[in-house]
Design a protein around this nucleic acid. Structure first.
Lengths: 158, 158
DNA sequence: GTTCCTGCAAAAGATTTGCAGTGAC
DNA sequence: GTCACTGCAAATCTTTTGCAGGAAC
C-alpha cells in the first residue's frame, strides 16, 4: 500500500497550497516524467466536491479538458490512492468512486439514495469523535474509515 | 426428558423464530414454488457469523450441502435483499458481500485488513447511538447505515 | 538516446440476462 | 399440465494487463 514517507510527503506545506497543487507536487516528486493525462485527472478531481467514478472521469474529460484513455485513468487513480492523495469510496453501486483527500477540513462521509443513485457528502463532528474512539479499541490499525448512509432522498421519497 | 419450549419452537412466532426460519417463511409468502437452491443459500447464510461474497457462497455450497449455480445465487441474493432479509455490504474488494439482517441483536459493522483482505465484524453501542442521531438530521430517509474501518490487522502489521 | 507515460486492445473478474429443462404445485 | 425455479452459457460491465508508439528528460 502506502510507501514509507509517502504520508509525510503528502502533508500540506504552509497550508496555502491547494489540493491540486499538492497533488502535482507529490506526483512530480515520485515520478521521473510528467505527462498531460495525470494533470488532467488531478485538475478534474480538484474541481469536484464529491466522489467520481473512473467512468465518470473518462466522460468528463472526453467532453472537456483532454481525452484520457480509460486504462490511464485507472492507473492514475491507483497511483493517487497509493500516495494518499485520493480515497477510494465504495458506496455499493458496483463501481468504485474516488475523491481528493483534503485533510481534516475536507473530511466527510456519504449519503446514497438507493432509488436514484445520488451520492451526497455530509459531515458530523460528534460522529467523528465517536469513530475515532472506536478506532482505538478494535484489533486493527485503522488507517481510514468510511461511513455510508443509505436511504431515499427528498425527490425519491414521495 | 421434557424440553420446555419445544412445542413453541415448532410453531414459530414473531419473536422466537430464527433468521433462517423467518427467511424461509417470507420467501414462501412471496413465491409460488419453493426450490432447494433458495433453502441451501439461506441455511448457509444463517450458519455464518459475517458477510460472504456470492463466489464464496458458490464455493461453500459446491463442497457442502448442495451445488447451486452461480446465476441462481445472485438471483437469490437479490431477492433476499429486496425482502430486506440480507444486507449487501461493500468493503472495497471489487465484490459485494451479503449477510443476514438479524435485527438489533446481530447488528454490527466491519473491519477490513487492506493487506490480507480479512473481514471481521465489530460492534460499538456508543458509535451506534452517534450514528442514529446523525441519521435524523441528514437530508435523506436513512434505511441502513454501513461503517467500514480499513487498516492493517495484527498479522499484517509487522 | 534512454526512460517512462500513455493509448489501444485484449484479458480478467464479477454480475446479469436469455433460454431451455426440470421440479413444484 | 402449467408455471416457476434452476442451471447453463453467453453477454455485459468494471477493472487490469501487455505491448507498442511517442513524449519527457
Amino acid at each position: 500500500m502506502a510507501r514509507p514517507g509517502a504520508r509525510l510527503a503528502a502533508m500540506p506545506r504552509a497550508g496555502t497550497e491547494s489540493w491540486s497543487e499538492r497533488a502535482q507536487r507529490v506526483l512530480a516528486e515520485s515520478h521521473r516524467h510528467s505527462g498531460g493525462a495525470r494533470r488532467a485527472v488531478v485538475e478534474l478531481l480538484d474541481s469536484q466536491s464529491c466522489a467520481l467514478s473512473a467512468l465518470e472521469i473518462e466522460d468528463a474529460l472526453r467532453t472537456g479538458r483532454r481525452r484520457v484513455a480509460r486504462a490511464s485513468i485507472y492507473r492514475i487513480l491507483d497511483e493517487l490512492e497509493r500516495l494518499e492523495l485520493v480515497q477510494k469510496v465504495e458506496v455499493g453501486q458496483a463501481m468504485a468512486r474516488y475523491e481528493p483527500l483534503r485533510g481534516e477540513n475536507g473530511h466527510h462521509h456519504h449519503l446514497v439514495c438507493d432509488s436514484c443513485g445520488a451520492v451526497m457528502p455530509f459531515t458530523d463532528p460528534e460522529l467523528e469523535r465517536a469513530i475515532k474512539k472506536t478506532s482505538r479499541r478494535v484489533p486493527i490499525d485503522v488507517a481510514v474509515h468510511e461511513i455510508v448512509l443509505h436511504g431515499a432522498c427528498a425527490d425519491c421519497r414521495q
